[in-house]
Amino acid sequence: MIKKILSILMLISLLIVFSLASFEALENSNSFSKDFYIENTYKHTGSKNLVTGIYLDYRLFDSIFEASILLVSVTGIIFMSKRDDEVL
């Protein structure tokens, strides 16, 4: 019973915090970086799709490690699926 009441209180507090944070973000929004990318992405990178321009030119450092995450997870899955006598 106490666990249920605690979980309901936790959910209500999460709801209040998220709604307050979203109202705060709507009021204090700053459109500097948005205007910068909309103006300059085609000039700098030559891509009409803004998302590709950002993740392959401005943030290439991030997307390379994102590609390495998939490599590591594939090797982990293949290592776990082998039996004992096949690995050792």
């Binding site: 030559g46 590709t52 998939l70």
Partner: peptide, 30 residues
């Protein structure tokens, strides 16, 4: 300038496809 984007997109696409296919193939073999 789009040549750089096209080549990187191509290599990333083939890499992701081979990774996901190998995950599915491991599960089927298992």
């Amino acid at each position: 300038k789009p040549i750089f984007l096209i080549t990187l997109n191509f290599f990333i696409g083939i890499k992701v496809a081979s990774g996901l296919i190998s995950i599915i193939a491991t599960f089927i073999e298992e």
